[in-house]
C-alpha cells in the first residue's frame, strides 16, 4: 500500500537528508578526524594522533572551565528546581490570578542568551557599584550572576512542567492522605513527590543540559572575566578555536570531550526514563 511512497524518496527525504549531511553529519565526522590533526583551515590538516587531547587535558583553561561548569551546573540545577517546584505547588492551589503569575514567570524563557546576559549585567553592576566594584572584579560575582540569570530564565519553564505533573495527580489521592491525618509535609513526601517523579526527571535533565551547555549568556555577561576565571566549557572551546592561533586542533579535541560528556548525560537520562516506563 505504501509502495508508491517508497519510490518517492527523492521528494520526501532527500531535501532534509542533504541539509542534515551538510550541516551536521559531515561536519560531525570531520570534527572527529580534525581533533586528531593540526590545522588552521580544514584543507591543511596533518595527522598528529592524540596530541591535541593531551594538550587539552594539560591546558589549565580547560580544566578550570570544566570545574567552573560543574559547580555552576550543580548549583543551578538545585536552585532552579526547588524554586520552580515551590511556585508550581503554590500555583496549583486554585488561587485567583494564577494565570497572570504563570505568564509572568514563564516570560524570560523566551528571551535569548545574549540579551539576557546584558540585561543582568546592568542589574548586577548596578548593585555592585554600591560596593565600588563591577561583575568582572571577582569570579564569585560572575558565578553568582550566571546562577541568578539561569534561574530567571529556567524557573518559569520548569514550573510549567511541574504544574502539568501536579495537576495529573488524582485529587482523591491527596484527599485520602488528608483524611488519614497526614500533615502537609507527609502528603508532599509520600504522595505528591512520588507522583510527580516523571516531571522531576524531565526537569532535572533539562536544567542539567541547559546549564552544562550554556554559552550565549556566558559570553554576554562576563565573557570569562576576570582572567578567564568565569569561562564555561562551551566558551572555552570557542576561545580556543578562534582566539588562539594554531590551537584549532586542541579546540576540536576539547569539543569532542565536551560532546562525550553531553552524550553520557543523555544516555543516563535515557536509562532512567526507560526504567521508569517499565515500573509504571
Amino acid at each position: 500500500m505504501h509502495n508508491n511512497l517508497k519510490k518517492q524518496f527523492p521528494i520526501f527525504v532527500l531535501p532534509t537528508l542533504a541539509a542534515f549531511l551538510i550541516a551536521f553529519a559531515i561536519p560531525f565526522f570531520m570534527g572527529i578526524y580534525l581533533s586528531l590533526t593540526e590545522f588552521t583551515t580544514i584543507t591543511d590538516a596533518s595527522f598528529v594522533g592524540v596530541q591535541n587531547y593531551m594538550k587539552a587535558f594539560s591546558d589549565n583553561s580547560f580544566l578550570s572551565a570544566l570545574w567552573f561548569t560543574v559547580r555552576f551546573t550543580v548549583v543551578s540545577v538545585i536552585t532552579v528546581n526547588i524554586i520552580a517546584f515551590t511556585l508550581a505547588m503554590i500555583l496549583t492551589k486554585g488561587l485567583r490570578g494564577t494565570n497572570f503569575f504563570r505568564t509572568v514567570f514563564f516570560m524570560p524563557n523566551l528571551i535569548g542568551g545574549i540579551v539576557l546576559g546584558y540585561i543582568w549585567q546592568i542589574i548586577i553592576n548596578g548593585i555592585l557599584q554600591y560596593a565600588g566594584v563591577t561583575i568582572t572584579f571577582d569570579p564569585k560575582y560572575g558565578f553568582l550572576g550566571l546562577v541568578v540569570l539561569t534561574n530567571w530564565q529556567l524557573i518559569g519553564y520548569m514550573m510549567i512542567i511541574y504544574i502539568a505533573g501536579i495537576q495529573n495527580i488524582p485529587g482523591d489521592l491527596i484527599d485520602a492522605s488528608r483524611v488519614d491525618g497526614a500533615g502537609f509535609f507527609d502528603t508532599l513526601k509520600n504522595v505528591i513527590i512520588p507522583m510527580v517523579m516523571p516531571s522531576v526527571t524531565i526537569c532535572l535533565f533539562l536544567t542539567l543540559t541547559n546549564s552544562f551547555k550554556l554559552f550565549d549568556a556566558n559570553l554576554a555577561l562576563t565573557d570569562g572575566a576576570p582572567a578567564g576565571k568565569t569561562t564555561m566549557l562551551a566558551l572555552d572551546i570557542y576561545k580556543t578555536f578562534y582566539g588562539r592561533i594554531g590551537y584549532q586542533g586542541v579546540g576540536q579535541a576539547k569539543a569532542v570531550v565536551f560532546f562525550l560528556i553531553a552524550a553520557l548525560i543523555s544516555l543516563v537520562q535515557l536509562g532512567i526514563t526507560r526504567r521508569k516506563e517499565v515500573d509504571v
Binding site: P27, I237, A255, F258
Partner: peptide, 29 residues
C-alpha cells in the same frame, strides 16, 4: 536515518561549528 536524527539532538553545537562554518563557506551558503 531515524537513529541518525535522534543522535544529532545530543551533539553540542561546538562539536561541529568549525567544520560546518567552513563547509557553508565553500558551498556558498
Amino acid at each position: 536515518l531515524y537513529y541518525a536524527f535522534v543522535f544529532s539532538m545530543i551533539v553540542p553545537f561546538q562539536m561541529v561549528m568549525f567544520s560546518m562554518s567552513k563547509i557553508a563557506n565553500i558551498l556558498y551558503l
